[in-house]
Design a protein around this nucleic acid. Sequence first.
DNA 1: ACCGCTATCGTGGTATACCATATATGAACG
DNA 2: CGTTCATATATGGTATACCACGATAGCGGT
Lengths: 239, 239
Amino acid sequence: MNSIVTLVQRTTSATPLALAPLNATSLRDQAYALLKTAIADTDIYDPKQELRLDERQLTEALGVSRTPIREALSLLEQEGFIRTVPRRGIYIIRKSKREMIEMIQMWAALESMAARLATLNASNAEIAKLRHLFDEFQTSPPSEHLCEYSDANIAFHTAVIALGGSQMIIDATKNLLLHVRAIRRATITQMDRAARSIIDHLKIIEALEHRDTELAEGLTRKHTLDLAAHVDRHCGFLG
Amino acid sequence: MNSIVTLVQRTTSATPLALAPLNATSLRDQAYALLKTAIADTDIYDPKQELRLDERQLTEALGVSRTPIREALSLLEQEGFIRTVPRRGIYIIRKSKREMIEMIQMWAALESMAARLATLNASNAEIAKLRHLFDEFQTSPPSEHLCEYSDANIAFHTAVIALGGSQMIIDATKNLLLHVRAIRRATITQMDRAARSIIDHLKIIEALEHRDTELAEGLTRKHTLDLAAHVDRHCGFLG
DNA sequence: ACCGCTATCGTGGTATACCATATATGAACG
DNA sequence: CGTTCATATATGGTATACCACGATAGCGGT
């Protein structure tokens, strides 16, 4: 819980005269953004982590009243990040294995649709940029920098989704990726998986470049469904 | 606006001693559900419709304070049903054509994934039930009862999605279908479209029955993407 | 010592008062 | 008559006080 509180206090310090958009956002939205990133940066699957939030504490930490915080919490609850139990408390949710798999399947559905749309609408220049995301990994094998690879991995998928051009899909997958990111430690630790992952990615890029709609869509779906199967087999630590 | 208000007042009348779940839901959730159905039942694409909501009016209509109403409105805003403009008002959103198409594409992605999952996990009995949804239309052509057909159409898609068994996908598509339903008048009025639609549905059912994963998925996706294309061509009234 | 009841407290839910500001209104001035 | 500026009003945003209710701990009885 402390990790969240400390993160949160950053904003209490007034912006040092960088008055660009003149603080046009409401306190609710600020609290929402802050809490969301705080939750995303918390390793919620660490059994030692305290997952209870306290409205009154957040009130103090952010220096605002309960109202905007409660509204922000309502939004986070609807997005499935927290759950509020009347007269008990507010808890960050640990996803069950089933839920995690469903999220990855949904992600597969949306990203494969994005790949389809990308073959139909994206420009050659945009598709070409995908290759640059892996430049650093073509010189040395990914096994040497697994941590960075995890980020690059997410960056690749985000890029494919963006290529689809559907703002709806882009927005919907943002939360999914946040949730899935929370267990990434457990999904890439085996480096043969990382190696195969890169090969998959390159194949997807090729399919996009060739404007092969069905292939790009199919490869993308299969690649992400493979992750779902992997989680199913190896992530017993999930409820 | 009046249509919403009247609908809303139903709940003001106390439940006539049908105290089943003892009103376990919070006022926020009640207001949320009520406003959502009210919006769904409003023909928001009728140019004459007043689309402005008033917090204070809703307060009176529901007999509660602004707090739970504001929280409910926050949720609806995040779901894309309304937009609140500071010091201007709260407005029900009319989706632009592009947004509507993106929603249908997303729907296609999710329903086709549900069809895939259905071929892998659903029971024969569950799949068999799909056919019953169209019993009434096999005796007489759909052109004779277009209104009922529209509902049956949505029921079919909902059933396929449910067959997939993914609660995530089920929840995510609920809102999509609500949004798309708002323009259904304009999408089925041509009855040859309704006829083709039935044929498509039957093919999808057959693919599910044969456990042909790729075919069921592909047909489902294509069928819904066809709707997107249709909207693109024929729904100029959308922004 | 153990069980049960009661009082207190902690918590989320709700109501309400207050605030800031964009818009509307109208009076005064040209 | 038109323009402009000041005042009023409407509206969403925020703060705060209050409430209901479950939990828990402490006290008393057995």
